[in-house]
Design a binder for these strands. Structure first.
Lengths: 157, 157
DNA sequence: ACTGTATGTATGTATATACATGTATTGGTA
DNA sequence: TACCAATACATGTATATACATACATACAGT
Protein backbone atom coordinates (compact mmCIF):
# COMPACT_ATOMS: atom_id res chain seq x y z
CA UNK A 1 0.00 0.00 0.00
CA UNK A 2 1.60 3.19 -1.14
CA UNK A 3 1.40 6.31 0.93
CA UNK A 4 1.14 9.31 -1.30
CA UNK A 5 2.38 12.76 -0.59
CA UNK A 6 -0.16 15.15 0.88
CA UNK A 7 -0.02 18.91 0.62
CA UNK A 8 1.21 19.38 4.15
CA UNK A 9 4.16 17.10 3.59
CA UNK A 10 4.90 18.85 0.31
CA UNK A 11 4.82 22.20 2.07
CA UNK A 12 7.32 20.90 4.58
CA UNK A 13 9.65 19.70 1.85
CA UNK A 14 9.45 23.03 0.09
CA UNK A 15 10.24 24.76 3.32
CA UNK A 16 13.30 22.84 4.46
CA UNK A 17 14.79 21.68 1.16
CA UNK A 18 18.50 22.44 1.28
CA UNK A 19 18.76 22.73 -2.45
CA UNK A 20 15.88 25.18 -2.75
CA UNK A 21 17.00 27.31 0.17
CA UNK A 22 20.51 27.59 -1.19
CA UNK A 23 19.41 28.22 -4.74
CA UNK A 24 16.99 30.92 -3.72
CA UNK A 25 19.39 32.89 -1.59
CA UNK A 26 22.17 32.39 -4.08
CA UNK A 27 19.95 33.61 -6.88
CA UNK A 28 18.85 36.70 -4.98
CA UNK A 29 22.40 37.62 -4.14
CA UNK A 30 23.52 37.05 -7.71
CA UNK A 31 20.75 39.37 -8.86
CA UNK A 32 21.78 42.05 -6.39
CA UNK A 33 25.42 41.87 -7.47
CA UNK A 34 24.58 41.88 -11.14
CA UNK A 35 22.37 44.90 -10.66
CA UNK A 36 25.06 46.86 -8.85
CA UNK A 37 27.79 45.67 -11.23
CA UNK A 38 25.86 46.78 -14.27
CA UNK A 39 27.94 49.98 -14.74
CA UNK A 40 31.08 47.83 -14.98
CA UNK A 41 29.62 45.48 -17.58
CA UNK A 42 30.70 42.49 -15.50
CA UNK A 43 28.49 39.85 -13.92
CA UNK A 44 29.38 38.47 -10.53
CA UNK A 45 30.25 35.08 -12.03
CA UNK A 46 32.60 36.79 -14.45
CA UNK A 47 34.12 38.88 -11.68
CA UNK A 48 34.70 35.72 -9.71
CA UNK A 49 36.26 33.90 -12.64
CA UNK A 50 38.50 36.87 -13.44
CA UNK A 51 39.59 36.93 -9.82
CA UNK A 52 40.53 33.28 -9.97
CA UNK A 53 42.47 33.80 -13.17
CA UNK A 54 44.30 36.77 -11.70
CA UNK A 55 45.15 34.75 -8.62
CA UNK A 56 46.40 31.78 -10.65
CA UNK A 57 48.12 33.07 -13.77
CA UNK A 58 48.62 30.66 -16.65
CA UNK A 59 46.11 28.25 -15.20
CA UNK A 60 44.68 25.60 -17.50
CA UNK A 61 40.99 25.35 -18.29
CA UNK A 62 40.60 22.09 -16.42
CA UNK A 63 42.41 23.36 -13.33
CA UNK A 64 40.23 26.43 -13.34
CA UNK A 65 37.23 24.15 -13.34
CA UNK A 66 38.64 22.18 -10.44
CA UNK A 67 39.24 25.15 -8.19
CA UNK A 68 35.93 26.77 -9.09
CA UNK A 69 34.03 23.48 -8.85
CA UNK A 70 32.69 23.90 -12.36
CA UNK A 71 32.49 21.50 -15.24
CA UNK A 72 35.25 21.93 -17.81
CA UNK A 73 32.71 22.64 -20.52
CA UNK A 74 31.21 25.42 -18.44
CA UNK A 75 34.63 26.97 -17.99
CA UNK A 76 35.30 26.78 -21.71
CA UNK A 77 32.11 28.62 -22.49
CA UNK A 78 32.42 31.24 -19.79
CA UNK A 79 36.01 31.87 -20.82
CA UNK A 80 34.96 32.46 -24.40
CA UNK A 81 32.75 35.28 -23.26
CA UNK A 82 35.57 36.85 -21.26
CA UNK A 83 37.86 36.34 -24.21
CA UNK A 84 35.47 38.03 -26.62
CA UNK A 85 35.38 40.99 -24.27
CA UNK A 86 39.15 41.07 -24.25
CA UNK A 87 39.43 40.39 -20.53
CA UNK A 88 41.53 37.24 -20.79
CA UNK A 89 44.07 35.74 -23.11
CA UNK A 90 43.97 32.05 -23.95
CA UNK A 91 46.90 30.30 -25.54
CA UNK A 92 48.14 26.78 -25.95
CA UNK A 93 50.69 25.57 -23.44
CA UNK A 94 54.15 25.06 -24.87
CA UNK A 95 54.91 21.77 -23.18
CA UNK A 96 51.57 20.17 -23.93
CA UNK A 97 49.61 21.42 -26.87
CA UNK A 98 46.41 19.86 -25.62
CA UNK A 99 46.42 22.23 -22.71
CA UNK A 100 45.38 25.85 -22.88
CA UNK A 101 46.51 28.39 -20.37
CA UNK A 102 44.57 31.47 -19.40
CA UNK A 103 45.85 34.86 -18.30
CA UNK A 104 44.08 38.07 -17.42
CA UNK A 105 44.67 41.03 -19.74
CA UNK A 106 45.29 44.65 -18.79
CA UNK A 107 41.70 45.42 -19.65
CA UNK A 108 40.49 42.51 -17.59
CA UNK A 109 42.55 43.70 -14.66
CA UNK A 110 41.04 47.16 -14.97
CA UNK A 111 37.57 45.64 -14.90
CA UNK A 112 38.51 43.65 -11.84
CA UNK A 113 39.57 46.85 -10.13
CA UNK A 114 36.44 48.68 -11.23
CA UNK A 115 34.21 46.01 -9.78
CA UNK A 116 36.00 45.37 -6.52
CA UNK A 117 34.63 48.40 -4.62
CA UNK A 118 31.13 47.19 -5.45
CA UNK A 119 31.94 43.71 -4.24
CA UNK A 120 33.32 45.18 -1.02
CA UNK A 121 30.25 47.31 -0.46
CA UNK A 122 27.91 44.34 -0.62
CA UNK A 123 30.16 42.08 1.39
CA UNK A 124 30.51 44.70 4.13
CA UNK A 125 26.79 45.25 4.18
CA UNK A 126 26.28 41.53 4.65
CA UNK A 127 28.94 41.07 7.30
CA UNK A 128 27.81 44.24 9.03
CA UNK A 129 24.16 43.31 9.07
CA UNK A 130 24.33 39.72 10.21
CA UNK A 131 27.58 40.16 12.12
CA UNK A 132 31.10 39.15 11.23
CA UNK A 133 31.14 36.14 13.54
CA UNK A 134 27.75 35.01 12.32
CA UNK A 135 28.95 35.32 8.76
CA UNK A 136 32.01 33.22 9.44
CA UNK A 137 29.72 30.68 11.04
CA UNK A 138 27.69 30.62 7.85
CA UNK A 139 30.77 29.98 5.74
CA UNK A 140 31.74 27.14 8.06
CA UNK A 141 28.33 25.57 7.77
CA UNK A 142 28.44 25.89 4.01
CA UNK A 143 31.81 24.21 4.08
CA UNK A 144 30.48 21.38 6.21
CA UNK A 145 27.61 20.97 3.79
CA UNK A 146 30.01 20.91 0.87
CA UNK A 147 31.88 18.06 2.57
CA UNK A 148 28.71 16.10 3.09
CA UNK A 149 27.85 16.52 -0.57
CA UNK A 150 31.31 15.49 -1.70
CA UNK A 151 31.23 12.41 0.50
CA UNK A 152 27.80 11.47 -0.72
CA UNK A 153 28.96 11.82 -4.29
CA UNK A 154 32.06 9.71 -3.88
CA UNK A 155 30.19 7.08 -1.86
CA UNK A 156 27.70 6.58 -4.66
CA UNK A 157 30.49 5.90 -7.15
CA UNK B 1 46.80 57.57 -6.40
CA UNK B 2 44.85 54.41 -7.05
CA UNK B 3 45.54 51.29 -5.08
CA UNK B 4 45.22 48.29 -7.32
CA UNK B 5 44.21 44.85 -6.29
CA UNK B 6 47.06 42.45 -5.55
CA UNK B 7 46.85 38.69 -5.76
CA UNK B 8 46.61 38.20 -2.05
CA UNK B 9 43.61 40.49 -1.80
CA UNK B 10 42.03 38.75 -4.75
CA UNK B 11 42.57 35.40 -3.08
CA UNK B 12 40.84 36.70 0.02
CA UNK B 13 37.87 37.90 -1.99
CA UNK B 14 37.59 34.58 -3.75
CA UNK B 15 37.69 32.84 -0.41
CA UNK B 16 35.04 34.76 1.48
CA UNK B 17 32.73 35.93 -1.29
CA UNK B 18 29.19 35.17 -0.18
CA UNK B 19 27.93 34.87 -3.70
CA UNK B 20 30.62 32.43 -4.77
CA UNK B 21 30.33 30.29 -1.65
CA UNK B 22 26.58 30.03 -2.01
CA UNK B 23 26.70 29.40 -5.73
CA UNK B 24 29.30 26.69 -5.41
CA UNK B 25 27.54 24.72 -2.70
CA UNK B 26 24.21 25.23 -4.37
CA UNK B 27 25.60 23.98 -7.65
CA UNK B 28 27.17 20.91 -6.11
CA UNK B 29 23.97 19.99 -4.35
CA UNK B 30 21.94 20.54 -7.49
CA UNK B 31 24.30 18.23 -9.34
CA UNK B 32 23.97 15.55 -6.68
CA UNK B 33 20.19 15.73 -6.75
CA UNK B 34 20.00 15.72 -10.51
CA UNK B 35 22.25 12.70 -10.64
CA UNK B 36 20.14 10.75 -8.17
CA UNK B 37 16.88 11.94 -9.72
CA UNK B 38 17.92 10.84 -13.19
CA UNK B 39 15.80 7.65 -13.08
CA UNK B 40 12.71 9.76 -12.47
CA UNK B 41 13.41 12.12 -15.35
CA UNK B 42 12.94 15.10 -13.07
CA UNK B 43 15.47 17.75 -12.14
CA UNK B 44 15.53 19.13 -8.63
CA UNK B 45 14.30 22.51 -9.87
CA UNK B 46 11.37 20.80 -11.55
CA UNK B 47 10.66 18.72 -8.48
CA UNK B 48 10.62 21.89 -6.42
CA UNK B 49 8.34 23.68 -8.83
CA UNK B 50 5.97 20.73 -9.01
CA UNK B 51 5.90 20.67 -5.22
CA UNK B 52 4.94 24.32 -5.12
CA UNK B 53 2.22 23.78 -7.68
CA UNK B 54 0.85 20.81 -5.77
CA UNK B 55 0.87 22.83 -2.58
CA UNK B 56 -0.88 25.80 -4.20
CA UNK B 57 -3.39 24.50 -6.74
CA UNK B 58 -4.67 26.91 -9.39
CA UNK B 59 -1.86 29.33 -8.66
CA UNK B 60 -1.09 31.99 -11.26
CA UNK B 61 2.23 32.24 -13.02
CA UNK B 62 3.11 35.51 -11.31
CA UNK B 63 2.20 34.24 -7.87
CA UNK B 64 4.30 31.17 -8.44
CA UNK B 65 7.19 33.45 -9.25
CA UNK B 66 6.61 35.42 -6.08
CA UNK B 67 6.64 32.46 -3.76
CA UNK B 68 9.60 30.84 -5.50
CA UNK B 69 11.50 34.14 -5.79
CA UNK B 70 11.83 33.72 -9.52
CA UNK B 71 11.25 36.11 -12.36
CA UNK B 72 7.92 35.68 -14.10
CA UNK B 73 9.63 34.95 -17.39
CA UNK B 74 11.63 32.18 -15.77
CA UNK B 75 8.47 30.62 -14.43
CA UNK B 76 6.82 30.81 -17.83
CA UNK B 77 9.68 28.97 -19.44
CA UNK B 78 10.11 26.36 -16.75
CA UNK B 79 6.39 25.72 -16.77
CA UNK B 80 6.43 25.14 -20.51
CA UNK B 81 8.87 22.30 -20.00
CA UNK B 82 6.70 20.74 -17.31
CA UNK B 83 3.70 21.25 -19.54
CA UNK B 84 5.36 19.56 -22.52
CA UNK B 85 6.08 16.60 -20.26
CA UNK B 86 2.45 16.53 -19.23
CA UNK B 87 3.18 17.20 -15.57
CA UNK B 88 1.09 20.35 -15.27
CA UNK B 89 -1.99 21.84 -16.82
CA UNK B 90 -2.13 25.54 -17.65
CA UNK B 91 -5.38 27.28 -18.41
CA UNK B 92 -6.69 30.82 -18.48
CA UNK B 93 -8.50 32.03 -15.40
CA UNK B 94 -12.21 32.55 -15.88
CA UNK B 95 -12.52 35.86 -14.08
CA UNK B 96 -9.48 37.45 -15.68
CA UNK B 97 -8.37 36.16 -19.02
CA UNK B 98 -4.94 37.72 -18.67
CA UNK B 99 -4.19 35.36 -15.83
CA UNK B 100 -3.23 31.73 -16.27
CA UNK B 101 -3.63 29.19 -13.54
CA UNK B 102 -1.49 26.11 -13.12
CA UNK B 103 -2.41 22.73 -11.72
CA UNK B 104 -0.48 19.51 -11.33
CA UNK B 105 -1.67 16.55 -13.41
CA UNK B 106 -2.00 12.94 -12.35
CA UNK B 107 1.24 12.17 -14.14
CA UNK B 108 2.96 15.09 -12.46
CA UNK B 109 1.74 13.89 -9.09
CA UNK B 110 3.13 10.43 -9.79
CA UNK B 111 6.48 11.95 -10.64
CA UNK B 112 6.39 13.95 -7.46
CA UNK B 113 5.82 10.75 -5.52
CA UNK B 114 8.55 8.92 -7.42
CA UNK B 115 11.08 11.60 -6.62
CA UNK B 116 10.23 12.23 -3.00
CA UNK B 117 12.07 9.21 -1.54
CA UNK B 118 15.21 10.42 -3.27
CA UNK B 119 14.76 13.90 -1.90
CA UNK B 120 14.29 12.42 1.57
CA UNK B 121 17.40 10.29 1.29
CA UNK B 122 19.62 13.28 0.52
CA UNK B 123 17.98 15.52 3.06
CA UNK B 124 18.37 12.90 5.77
CA UNK B 125 21.97 12.36 4.84
CA UNK B 126 22.59 16.08 5.16
CA UNK B 127 20.74 16.53 8.41
CA UNK B 128 22.28 13.37 9.78
CA UNK B 129 25.82 14.30 8.85
CA UNK B 130 25.96 17.87 9.99
CA UNK B 131 23.35 17.46 12.69
CA UNK B 132 19.70 18.47 12.78
CA UNK B 133 20.28 21.47 15.00
CA UNK B 134 23.22 22.61 12.94
CA UNK B 135 21.12 22.30 9.83
CA UNK B 136 18.35 24.38 11.30
CA UNK B 137 20.99 26.93 12.22
CA UNK B 138 22.10 26.99 8.62
CA UNK B 139 18.56 27.63 7.42
CA UNK B 140 18.25 30.46 9.91
CA UNK B 141 21.45 32.04 8.71
CA UNK B 142 20.33 31.73 5.12
CA UNK B 143 17.11 33.39 6.09
CA UNK B 144 18.96 36.22 7.79
CA UNK B 145 21.07 36.64 4.68
CA UNK B 146 17.98 36.71 2.52
CA UNK B 147 16.64 39.54 4.66
CA UNK B 148 19.84 41.51 4.29
CA UNK B 149 19.68 41.07 0.54
CA UNK B 150 16.03 42.12 0.39
CA UNK B 151 16.71 45.21 2.49
CA UNK B 152 19.67 46.15 0.38
CA UNK B 153 17.59 45.79 -2.75
CA UNK B 154 14.72 47.90 -1.52
CA UNK B 155 17.06 50.53 -0.08
CA UNK B 156 18.70 51.03 -3.47
CA UNK B 157 15.35 51.72 -5.12
C1' DA C 1 57.69 3.03 -34.65
C1' DC C 2 52.63 1.48 -33.72
C1' DT C 3 48.87 1.16 -31.18
C1' DG C 4 45.80 1.76 -27.53
C1' DT C 5 44.65 4.49 -23.63
C1' DA C 6 44.52 8.53 -21.05
C1' DT C 7 44.15 13.50 -20.95
C1' DG C 8 42.64 18.26 -22.31
C1' DT C 9 39.45 20.83 -24.83
C1' DA C 10 35.31 21.72 -27.82
C1' DT C 11 30.53 21.01 -29.48
C1' DG C 12 25.62 19.57 -29.51
C1' DT C 13 21.85 19.81 -26.73
C1' DA C 14 19.05 20.95 -22.84
C1' DT C 15 17.68 23.43 -18.65
C1' DA C 16 17.74 27.53 -15.53
C1' DT C 17 17.77 32.17 -15.13
C1' DA C 18 17.06 37.34 -15.89
C1' DC C 19 16.36 41.79 -18.36
C1' DA C 20 14.22 44.52 -21.87
C1' DT C 21 10.44 44.70 -24.30
C1' DG C 22 6.14 43.42 -26.67
C1' DT C 23 1.15 42.07 -26.47
C1' DA C 24 -3.28 41.45 -24.52
C1' DT C 25 -6.67 42.37 -21.16
C1' DT C 26 -8.69 44.85 -17.34
C1' DG C 27 -10.30 48.79 -15.00
C1' DG C 28 -10.58 53.51 -13.76
C1' DT C 29 -11.46 58.24 -15.29
C1' DA C 30 -12.47 62.24 -18.06
C1' DT D 1 -17.96 55.61 -23.78
C1' DA D 2 -13.43 56.21 -25.24
C1' DC D 3 -8.86 56.37 -23.59
C1' DC D 4 -5.00 55.54 -20.56
C1' DA D 5 -2.66 53.26 -16.95
C1' DA D 6 -1.89 49.04 -14.66
C1' DT D 7 -1.58 44.14 -14.79
C1' DA D 8 -0.43 39.42 -16.62
C1' DC D 9 1.90 36.85 -19.68
C1' DA D 10 5.14 35.88 -23.73
C1' DT D 11 9.30 36.56 -26.61
C1' DG D 12 14.05 38.00 -27.95
C1' DT D 13 18.42 37.78 -26.28
C1' DA D 14 22.17 36.66 -23.27
C1' DT D 15 24.61 34.18 -19.61
C1' DA D 16 25.41 30.08 -16.58
C1' DT D 17 25.45 25.46 -16.18
C1' DA D 18 25.94 20.29 -17.08
C1' DC D 19 25.97 15.81 -19.64
C1' DA D 20 27.11 13.07 -23.55
C1' DT D 21 30.17 12.87 -26.82
C1' DA D 22 33.65 14.02 -30.27
C1' DC D 23 38.28 15.48 -31.34
C1' DA D 24 43.13 16.13 -30.79
C1' DT D 25 47.30 15.33 -28.52
C1' DA D 26 50.39 12.94 -25.41
C1' DC D 27 52.21 8.86 -23.42
C1' DA D 28 53.12 4.08 -22.34
C1' DG D 29 53.90 -0.56 -23.67
C1' DT D 30 55.23 -3.74 -27.04
Amino acid sequence: MKKDLDQEQAAYIIDVCASANLRTVSGSLTQLYNHLLKPTGLKITQYYMLGNIYTSPDISISKLGEIMLLDQTTVTRNLNILNDSGYVQIKRAEQDSRTKVVTITELGYEKLNDATPIWIRVQEEIEGSIGKAEYMGLLEKLDALQNVIDNFKSSST
